[in-house]
Nucleic acid binder design. Structure first.
Lengths: 224, 224
DNA sequence: ATCGTAATACTCTGAGTCGAGTAATCGAGT
DNA sequence: ACTCGATTACTCGACTCAGAGTATTACGAT
């Protein structure tokens, strides 16, 4: 029976840490934090311990020993198994080589943006822009403080974050501009839809009125 | 007692649909699919029904009626409550206006990339590049087939996706170039680390040897 | 000497998530 | 008339996750 791959990237981080050297869970969490990996990999105790347990059950890691110092809770030190090594390289290779849909919050929100009236959306996006700019400046400041010749290897994930943030900033800037100068495609329908709803029309009446006022919509309705 | 906000964007989609008109869960899923929202919001039946139940328990939606046709399973038609409307606009507004950490797979993978030897990473990234290019072309093709004057409102989330994909493509291209021409900061240490590990040195020996061969690393170790 | 805070090291519980499964109906073809 | 796949509509159970809670020790400040 082929072992099913976990979905939580924290499991990959655990395997990666154990491929360096044996550790107990708490040490994994401190190490990840020290290396700023919690910025890129969601980390909390509850998940960590259940992820470790699940890797253990699947035979991808084994308990090497459990030590107890004084009356402190026991620490179980784990190490990676050969099967774990294989799973780790396969998994990491796949994540690096295959782009997959990511379901981010902002994309979800954008896909539902028509729910709010356009007039409300403009200030919200403006606020996002300034937050993005702020985060960007924070990143630049940290970047500038880093000594020359510091291995990019250790910060490549935050460079990636910055590249995406930058792209998002450009995208939202453009979107906002189109909303403000009225060139955004569909703006009139969007606006009118909320007007009709606010006047108390039923969903069906709203639908009918919109189709009457914007006949070009007809052609764009999804086929059967 | 303030109602805790769900974390699953599917709950937001449910509220958004019900703010249009009352529906039963299965219709929600078909509507989301028809509008291609499953590309931006993770959708599966198990989650949908438990998300709906949880919204119901929290008083954000109510069951308007349950109908049964023939011997088919019952359909419960839900509608949104005033509390649900408030929660929805607040939530959507927050998602639009506040950028938050997103923990994507590729960022996680990048943060652990040192686990693989650099020589293995190069072809993986090359493969990612060509996949990204392929997805980009698919998007452009669809975009080109869309009639003139089609409301951008309906596809803004896939435009966003494309903007991010584009940025990622540029980032990976640059990264790959640096890896191939040897200008990537930390490449030598990275390479050497895997050589030492492959020669069978213990983690501690590897650590010591690296510090001896690359004394500049010393200054970059995390402070206590 | 003791007080409070941070750090160490987990545990527990409830909620959320997902995929597979069930069971009926509809419509296109043979 | 029949059958086969698609569609409609939901249910179930095993797993996963998050956050709060617990208990001990270390350490600087009062």
């Amino acid at each position: 029976m082929a072992v099913r791959r976990p979905t939580n990237a924290l499991a990959l981080a655990v395997l990666s840490l154990l491929s360096e050297r044996p550790m107990h869970p708490y040490e994994m969490s401190s190490t990840l934090r020290q290396r700023h990996k919690e910025d890129s990999i969601r980390l909390n105790y509850g998940s960590l311990y259940s992820v470790v347990e699940s890797l253990h059950k699947k035979g991808l890691i084994t308990a090497r020993e459990t030590v107890r110092e004084g009356r402190r809770p026991e620490r179980t030190i784990y190490e990676i198994t050969p099967a774990g090594e294989v799973m780790m390289t396969d998994w990491l290779s796949e994540l690096l080589s295959e782009p997959t849909a990511q379901f981010t919050d902002f994309e979800a929100a954008l896909s539902l943006v028509a729910t709010l009236p356009p007039g409300d959306v403009v200030p919200l996006l403006a606020r996002r822009l300034s937050e993005l700019a702020f985060q960007s400046r924070a990143y630049e400041a940290i970047r500038a403080a880093v000594p020359d010749g510091f291995p990019r290897l250790f910060v490549v994930e935050s460079d990636y974050q910055q590249a995406l943030r930058d792209a998002e900033h450009r995208f939202v800037t453009e979107l906002l501009a189109e909303l403000e100068d009225g060139t955004f495609g569909g703006l009139a329908v969007w606006q009118r839809m909320h007007e009709l709803r606010d006047e108390g029309l039923s969903p069906e009446q709203t639908q009918r009125t919109l189709l009457a006022e914007f006949p070009e919509l007809e052609a764009m309705m999804p086929e059967p």
